[in-house]
Amino acid sequence: MPSDRQQLEDRLDRIKEIMELATEYKLLPDWAAIVGGTMILIATLITYRLTGSWDVAAVFRLGENRFWLVAAMWSGSVLASILLYYVIALRDAKKLGVSLESRPSQLARRSMAPALFASAVITLRLLLDGHLGYLPGIWILGYGVALVNAGLFSTTAPRILGLLFMAVGTAAIVCFQRYDLALTGLTFGAFHVAFGCYVLSKKSA
């Protein structure tokens, strides 16, 4: 049985925790996830049209011009998605009168970094060794781990999304390497669109 003093301190901690969580909740990406995911889906379909294969390795067999076109399209889509996320998050934070630098935001970003760093290091090694087929799976899995970590400081939805990415990433590495372009579109594209729709539906429910 906690003492009265402990009970009151617990109340103060709970207030802080819930106020931070509520702020985070309002800043979960909706339209940013939908638009970003749609861009990735479009990039996936264009890549498939150019290569005729669901295997990302086929991109590296394209002529130099087409290869750079695909590389620029994917880099552009990813950068535009990240930029869009920040623009919308900043707008929402301003509307709510809160800072993006809240403790849960900082913790979420920091907790994503190790998994993304590990993915980048593995990517470098695979590029040097020419094992390009593993790249999509590594990034799907790594991003999933990053989301699960970030979700520890947020609500359950990002954690579930992260677990789905991890499951598909594992499948992409272990048994579906030849379909890794499709799995990239499914995860970074369709999963993000579905997540954005889920957040929107919660906000309007």
């Binding site: 509520a22 702020t23 909740y25 709510l96």
Partner: peptide
């Protein structure tokens, strides 16, 4: 606490 931070929330949220 949640409403003080978020301004307003739906029932489901």
């Amino acid at each position: 606490s949640a409403l003080a931070a978020a301004g307003e929330l739906t029932f489901v949220e």
